[in-house]
């Protein structure tokens, strides 16, 4: 039964990769890669059960955290052009609205 779930996750990951390659905007790609990461976490957990190696769950836990930090870092990089910029500068949209 874990094999069926692994198969489903693999198919869904391939679909996500297609979206990441096709995606017209950069946001589509980031969304697809983030969702791909969530599926990777699930796949690691399920594979740990399938192969009888519960240590995979630790890797899944770490991957869940790194995936989140990576998504935020990529978005911050695209928004501000660097990772060292302070994030509390004024919002360009609000600025024009005034």
């Amino acid at each position: 039964m874990f094999a069926a779930t692994t198969l489903a996750l693999g198919v869904a990951m391939i679909l996500m990769l297609i979206r990441a390659v096709l995606g017209p905007t950069v946001y589509d790609r980031v969304l697809a890669v983030n969702s791909f990461g969530t599926k990777t976490v699930l796949l690691l957990g399920v594979l740990g059960f399938l192969m009888g190696r519960p240590a995979f769950l630790d890797i899944a836990l770490l991957y869940a955290l790194i995936n989140f930090v990576g998504t935020i870092a990529i978005l911050k990089f695209f928004r501000y052009g660097g990772l060292m910029t302070a994030m509390d500068d004024e919002d360009p949209i609000r600025q024009e609205g005034r």
Binding site: A4, T5, L7, A8, L9, V11, A12, M13, L15, M16, I18, R19, L31, A32, S35, K39, L42
Partner: peptide, 13 residues
């Protein structure tokens, strides 16, 4: 759960 994961991926496409 696997079915919902696939549905989500199909929807994203």
């Amino acid at each position: 759960g696997g079915a919902f994961v696939i549905i989500g991926a199909v929807g994203t496409l």
